[in-house]
Write a protein that binds this DNA or RNA. Structure first.
Length: 157
DNA sequence: GCCAACGTTGGC
DNA sequence: GCCAACGTTGGC
C-alpha cells in the first residue's frame, strides 16, 4: 500500500489562517502544536515533500477548505514542546528524545472557501474522513478521488 | 455555551 | 490490560 499523496490539515484561523500562511516568509509555516499521536505519525511516517494539502479552517464561524498547500519538508522536532512558556510545552519530552515532530507546509494557492456545509452536501466527498461524525483528528489522509472532487468544486463558483 | 465523540491518563 | 474519569475538539 503506497503512502497517501493527499492530506487535509485543520488550522484554527485565529492561530494560522490561509492569509497568515500567504503572509509568512516563503509562504511557508512549521506545522507546530500537533499533540496527537496519529496525526504525528502521519507527518513522521507517511508524508513526503510535495504531497498535496487541503488547508481547512476549523473552530471558526465559517469552517471549510480555504486553500491548497503542499508538504514542504520532512518531519523534524517541534521546538514548542521544549518551551516552558508555550501552551504546547510537553514536560515529558526532551531534546534527546523528542516526542513531537512536524513538517513545514507551503501555500500553493488560496481558493474560495469551500464551506463544510457544501462538503457535506456533495456525494463525491461523503467518504472524506473529516466528515465522519465525531472526527477530531487534525490531519487526515485524502484519496485521489476526493482530492479531484474537491478541486473541481473549488473551480466552480 | 452546549454537548457528543473520542484520545489520554492512571488506579487497580 | 481494563476501564472510569477527565480533558479536548469542534460544529452548532
Amino acid at each position: 500500500m503506497p503512502s497517501p499523496r493527499y492530506w487535509l490539515m485543520k488550522s484554527e484561523p485565529d492561530e494560522c489562517s490561509i492569509d497568515d500562511l500567504a503572509r509568512a516568509p516563503g509562504q511557508q509555516v512549521p506545522w507546530t502544536g500537533v499533540r496527537n499521536y496519529q496525526a504525528r505519525n502521519f507527518m513522521r511516517d507517511a508524508m513526503r515533500i510535495g504531497d498535496g494539502v487541503l488547508f481547512y479552517h476549523s473552530s471558526c464561524p465559517e469552517p471549510g477548505i480555504a486553500g491548497i498547500a503542499e508538504v514542504a519538508s520532512t518531519a523534524y522536532p517541534d521546538a514548542t514542546q521544549f518551551d516552558p512558556g508555550s501552551p504546547y510545552h510537553d514536560p515529558k519530552s526532551s531534546p534527546e528524545a523528542p516526542r513531537w515532530v512536524h513538517v513545514d507546509v507551503k501555500l500553493v494557492r488560496k481558493t474560495r472557501l469551500l464551506p463544510l456545509k457544501e462538503m457535506r452536501a456533495t456525494p463525491a466527498l461523503a467518504t472524506m474522513q473529516v466528515l465522519r461524525p465525531g472526527n477530531r483528528l487534525s490531519i487526515t489522509p485524502v484519496t485521489p478521488e476526493e482530492w479531484r472532487a474537491v478541486l473541481s468544486l473549488l473551480e466552480s463558483a
